[in-house]
Write a protein that binds this DNA or RNA. Structure first.
Lengths: 150, 150
DNA sequence: TTAAGTGCAAAAGCTTTGCGGGTAG
DNA sequence: CTACCCGCAAAGCTTTTGCACTTAA
C-alpha cells in the first residue's frame, strides 16, 4: 500500500482508538504496519513471522488478538477462502478475489463492473447486506504451470 | 436435497468411481449421503458426528480423506468463508452465499440476476476462471436478535 | 493511577501422516 | 490377486484461555 494511503489508515486507527478507549500499543502499530504492506492475505502465523523481527519478544498470542481487534475496529477485514487458517486483508473497501481451487490462493482484482452489481432481495432470509465480494474461482498461473509439468 | 437429485448425484459418483478406478466403499457412500442431505455447509467434524451412528467404527481420518476425495471428484465443493474449519457444500452448480460477519455462518441464496454476472478479463493475472460465487456480507437473523438483546 | 494489554504456558481444536491389516473390483 | 482403502495412534498445525506482570493514557 502506498505511503499516503497507509498514513491515512493509521490516522483512522488512532482516531478510533481514542474514540473507543483502545490503547494504541507498539504491538498493534507494528501488526497494522505489516498487514497494510502485505498483498497476499497473510495468515496470523505469517504476520507473526514478520513482526517478530521488528518487535522482539512479541508473542503469537498477541498477534492473534491484535488481528481480531483490528477487524472489530473495521481497520482490516477477514478474507473468505477455502482452507483452514484464517487470513486477513488490508483492504476494507469493495474489491474482488480470484480464488485458486488448486492452491487456495486468493488474488485481489478490481472491476468497476462488478462493483455495480445489483444486490438481490434478502428480506425472506431476514439478512441485512452490508457489502459484497465476488469470488472468481479457477486456476492460477503457478498451478497451471504445475499441471503442464505433470 | 430431494430424492431424485440425490439419486442422480449418486449415479454420477459411481460413474466417476468407475472411470477413475476409485473404489466405491461403504464409508464413501455414507459420507456422500450425509453431505447431500445437509443444508448447513457442515465441517468435517459435524459430518463425522452423524456418520458414526450409521457406520459404526468409521474413523475421523476417513471422513477427512473422503471429503477431500469427493471434492477432487467434483461431487461436492468446499465453501469459502471466514473462520477456521473447512466446510463443505453439497451444491456444485452456481449459487451464492449470505455470509454473516458476526457468526461466520453461510446461507445459500439463488439469484438469476447474480448468475448472469459478466466475468471480467483476468488475462493480466493469467488466471483461468471456471465459475464464480457472490458473497453478500452482513448480519444474519439470529445475530440481529442478539444485538438487540444487548 | 488503573483499565486494558501483553507474554507465557498449557490446553483445546483442527488436520495430516505413516503403517499394518482389510476390502473392492 | 492386487492396488487401494481403512482405522489407529501419533504428530503437527491453528487458535484460545487463564494468570501474573506491564503499559498507555
Amino acid at each position: 500500500m502506498d505511503e499516503k494511503k497507509k498514513k491515512h489508515r493509521f490516522d483512522l486507527f488512532e482516531e478510533r482508538c481514542r474514540q473507543q478507549g483502545i490503547p494504541c500499543t507498539v504491538q498493534r502499530r507494528a501488526v497494522l504496519d505489516i498487514i497494510l504492506d502485505s498483498d497476499h492475505h497473510p495468515t496470523t502465523d505469517q504476520v507473526f513471522d514478520v513482526v517478530r523481527d521488528r518487535v522482539p519478544g512479541i508473542s503469537r498470542t498477541t498477534v492473534y488478538r491484535t488481528l481480531e481487534t483490528l477487524v472489530r475496529m473495521d481497520i482490516i477485514t477477514k478474507t473468505c477462502h477455502p482452507g483452514s487458517a484464517v487470513r486477513y486483508d488490508p483492504r476494507v473497501e469493495i474489491h474482488h478475489h480470484l480464488v485458486c481451487l488448486y492452491c487456495d490462493d486468493v488474488i485481489d482484482i478490481d472491476s468497476e463492473q462488478l462493483n455495480l452489481l445489483p444486490v438481490p432481495d434478502t428480506s425472506k432470509e431476514e439478512f441485512d447486506v452490508f457489502d459484497f465480494r465476488v469470488q472468481l474461482r479457477g486456476i492460477c498461473r503457478n498451478c497451471k504451470k504445475k499441471e503442464v509439468e505433470r
